[in-house]
């Protein structure tokens, strides 16, 4: 009942209409999530990560950045305890609070990178796929150039050129990330534009712009949605890698990759310093991957049919 209501509300809102109708049957989607414990786990992890990213700094038991110089000697590099579940770092700061605050940094980085790269990928992919010819050739050869380098190496190169810092890391990751989205969108557009309903829309006098954005785009977006979910984890991993080698977030920003790198000095005696930030990265990335896989199943009509055969309604 509740789902029906949500579904109705989603379908009514214009912005969500196309995405809402991508999943024709929300009840069935819910069923898939329920039946696949991995997807559920992924969904919970991603939800928790998002919530912690938003409210993390406010619920952190200690200040994640400020150093209390009066207690540094006493509190530095404490092992996990009830007071400090993740232990403390060499300045006596609570690692649990720093990891919590780090969620926000990772969330921000991945959101910024996605909000830059996804629109670029969508627009260029649509143009390349729909118009073809010389425009297609130009766009695709440029993406080929970018994709011919290993992504992380290219990101390191850009990041180093732009100077260390979170902002340049985000920019570098964006530069590296968009070409794969162009490819995915273009490939899908090539399939969709040959469909009869696109020709039918044209034959009914619907304008090219409307055909592109109202018919081709919503029909091409499914693989991108899955890829973006999977890539959220990859972006977090890549930004952590950049921070780990000193290019991304700078101290005292509590970035997970940075925390792992800082703790390396004390490893393995003070194992908790690197261990807990590393665990946070692991769980978050895993969560996004598992959710992406589940999402692919939900949005794949073949999978839906298989479930319907089994009598799920």
């Amino acid at each position: 009942m509740m789902l029906k209501k949500i579904n109705g509300a989603l379908l009514k809102s214009n912005a969500l209409r196309s995405v809402g109708s991508l999943v024709h049957d929300w009840g069935l989607a819910f069923e898939v999530v329920k039946r696949s414990p991995l997807t559920t786990a992924g969904l919970i992890i991603v939800a928790a990560f998002t919530v912690l990213g938003i409210i993390g700094p406010y619920i952190a038991p200690y200040n994640p950045i400020e150093i209390d110089f009066s207690t540094v000697a006493l509190k530095r590099l404490q092992p996990p305890s009830l007071q400090h579940p993740f232990g403390t770092d060499e300045y006596g700061r609570d690692l649990f609070s720093r990891v919590l605050a780090g969620a926000r940094v990772s969330l921000m980085v991945s959101l910024v990178v996605m909000s830059i790269t996804v629109p670029i990928g969508l627009v260029l992919g649509l143009i390349a796929g729909y118009y073809g010819g010389v425009i297609d050739e130009i766009i695709m050869r440029v993406t080929d150039v970018f994709l011919s380098f290993p992504g992380l190496v290219l990101a390191i190169a850009f990041s180093a050129t732009l100077g260390a810092g979170l902002f340049s890391a985000m920019l570098a990751l964006s530069i590296v990330w968009w070409p794969s989205y162009v490819r995915v969108v273009r490939a899908q557009v090539l399939v969709v534009r040959e469909q009869l309903f696109i020709e039918a829309a044209k034959a009914m006098g619907v304008s090219t712009r409307r055909i592109l954005f109202k018919h081709i785009l919503p029909n091409s977006i499914t693989p991108l949605l899955v890829l973006v979910t999977l890539d959220f984890g990859s972006v977090i991993l890549a930004s952590s890698a950049l921070s780990f080698i000193g290019l991304g977030a700078q101290p005292p920003t509590p970035e997970w990759g940075r925390l792992v790198a800082d703790g390396r000095r004390w490893f393995p005696e003070k194992w908790w310093y690197s261990f807990f930030p590393g665990l946070a990265i692991l769980i978050t990335v895993l969560g996004f991957n598992v959710l992406g896989d589940g999402l692919r199943d939900i949005l794949d009509p073949r999978f839906r049919r298989r479930l319907e055969f089994r009598g799920v309604e």
Partner: peptide, 24 residues
């Protein structure tokens, strides 16, 4: 020509299953 298509001359297709956008 776009003003003629669908207003003056319109088409009915052989395969109605594919002539409608599944998302709408």
């Amino acid at each position: 020509l776009r003003k003629i298509r669908g207003r003056e001359i319109s088409y009915v297709y052989q395969d109605p299953g594919n002539a409608l956008d599944p998302l709408y």
